[in-house]
Amino acid sequence: MTYSKQEAVDHSQIILSHAWMVRTFIKHSDEVEDFPELMHIARAVFDTSRALETRVEDPEAYLKMLRKKISKLRKATDQFALDAPEASLHMNFQQAVISMKACTKALEELLEQVE
């Protein structure tokens, strides 16, 4: 499937809304007090989302910024997958890891499919 630039922006915003929910979960989890490294994923999602939100009306600039930010988000996601089980084996953390991996992968695939 190929996306127009505007369709890619719209779809990206949906994907990032899921990542934002992981951010919110981590930010408000009790475990973050003992494992502050969990905040790396929260900061990466925040940084990516904030950098993109000002460009929603300019698909070219939005996608350029997403390409710039995706590697940092990927690194944070990969680290989160290592850190989360150290903080807790609870299903909420397992699902948060799965969700972040899916979000990051979906964004990477979306960037490959833009016209």
Rank of each mutant, 00 (worst) to 15 (best):
S88R: 01
S17H: 12
D10W: 11
S17R: 09
H40F: 04
E31H: 12
L16I: 15
R74E: 14
A87Q: 03
E115V: 11
P85G: 08
Q13M: 05
E115D: 12
A84K: 09
F80Y: 06
N92C: 11
V45G: 04
E108V: 15
L63C: 05
R67S: 14
R23V: 06
K75V: 15
F80C: 01
E115Y: 06
H11R: 08
F80T: 00
D78A: 04
K72I: 05
L111Q: 15
V9A: 01
H11E: 15
H28Y: 12
T77A: 08
E115A: 15
T48W: 07
L38D: 14
I15F: 09
E33W: 13
L16R: 05
I14D: 04
D34W: 14
E31A: 14
K68V: 09
Q94G: 11
T54P: 00
E53A: 07
H40S: 12
E109Y: 07
S12C: 01
R43C: 01
M1D: 14
A19S: 07
S88K: 06
I41D: 12
F46E: 05
H18P: 02
K68M: 13
T54K: 04
T2F: 11
Q79P: 00
F25G: 14
E53S: 12
Q113V: 06
A106F: 02
F35W: 08
A51Y: 02
V22I: 06
T24M: 03
M65L: 03
D30L: 14
S49Q: 06
D83S: 15
E7N: 01
L52W: 09
D78F: 03
A19N: 09
P85C: 12
M21R: 09
